[in-house]
């Protein structure tokens, strides 16, 4: 499913003129199926408001543009948001705060019961087991446990299992790595990539972490004061340092090193992933012997 927004605007506090705050203005962007799409920008730049539109958590306001996700027209009042939400999974910041059921199994099954009440108990149990295993938890050990007995990292995995159990085609992640240690972060991104190879066709990820964006995203959009000021591959985005400075964002480590090396007369032109950067760097200096 392709995501398209056309001239999308949104303001909070619609009813009271004195309190009205514009959160989005004139956002037009297309995310094609198969992409790993990054959304970057300062706090309060409209990123969250934007992604909440993608599964109808925030409705498109009258005369404020349009949002299409696959065949769904989200400006249409008759749009079937429930079936849309089964296809667009949304992982929030600190997803572990949404856990509520008595056992991990029940919590993961929550979405299934809501979206597909017609499933037989056997089918449901099978899907729940698969989701729990997909996120890297030991089904036999955790299924009957209370989600609140799990460790922090396990809780987050269990919460994500509760989102992917419906096998969404689009996965939207809002700052998913916040509060994770470096190893946890890496494992988490590996998980997202594993999902991206499976039923998840498109990933939209909101992040403050430029390294995460340069390392993983095929394309990204830079939000500033409710507008998209740049869209492109990480290479294109981080090439334009002035836009980044104005938005208070930083360079990923690879782009930073490329820039510093360039100042010293060494030109390296990678796609800004660590692997490509080190490969190109090693290639350049392959002939240079140790002193």
């Amino acid at each position: 499913m392709r995501i398209t927004t056309e001239n999308l605007s949104y303001s909070y506090g619609e009813n009271d003129k004195t309190l009205r705050v514009k959160a989005l203005s004139g956002v037009s962007v297309t995310v094609n199926e198969g992409e790993f799409f990054g959304i970057i920008g300062q706090t309060g730049s409209g990123k969250s408001t934007f992604v909440f539109h993608l599964n109808g958590l925030i409705r498109v306001q009258k005369g404020c543009g349009a949002v299409y996700v696959g065949d769904y027209d989200l400006t249409d009042k008759k749009c079937d948001f429930k079936s849309l939400r089964a296809k667009v999974g949304m992982v929030f910041q600190y997803p572990e705060y949404q856990l509520f059921a008595e056992t991990v199994r029940d919590d993961v099954a929550f979405g299934l019961k809501n979206f597909f009440p017609g499933l037989s108990d056997k089918e449901r149990a099978e899907k729940v087991r698969r989701a729990i295993e997909t996120v890297g938890l030991d089904y036999a050990k955790v299924a009957e446990k209370s989600p609140f007995e799990l460790s922090g990292g396990q809780k987050r995995r269990a919460a994500i299992a509760g989102v992917i159990v419906t096998e969404p085609e689009i996965l939207v992640l809002d700052e998913p790595a916040a509060g994770l240690d470096p190893v946890g972060k890496r494992e988490f991104m590996n998980l997202v990539h594993a999902l991206h190879g499976k039923f998840v066709k498109t990933v939209v990820i909101v992040s403050h972490d430029m390294n995460l964006v340069s390392e993983n995203c095929t394309r990204a959009a830079v939000f500033s004061h409710g507008e998209i000021i740049k869209t492109g591959t990480p290479k294109e985005i981080f090439a334009d340092e002035r836009t980044l400075e104005n938005t208070g964002l930083d360079l990923p480590v690879t782009a930073f090193l490329e820039k510093r090396l360039k100042e010293k007369g060494v030109y390296i032109d990678s796609d800004l992933t660590i692997k490509d950067f080190t490969d190109k760097f090693a290639e350049k200096f392959a002939g240079v012997k140790k002193q």
Binding site: F52, R85, G89, F92, Q98, G111, V163
Partner: peptide, 8 residues
């Protein structure tokens, strides 16, 4: 919002 996303 989180629970609505899960179909609540």
């Amino acid at each position: 919002k989180a629970q609505k996303s899960r179909g609540a």
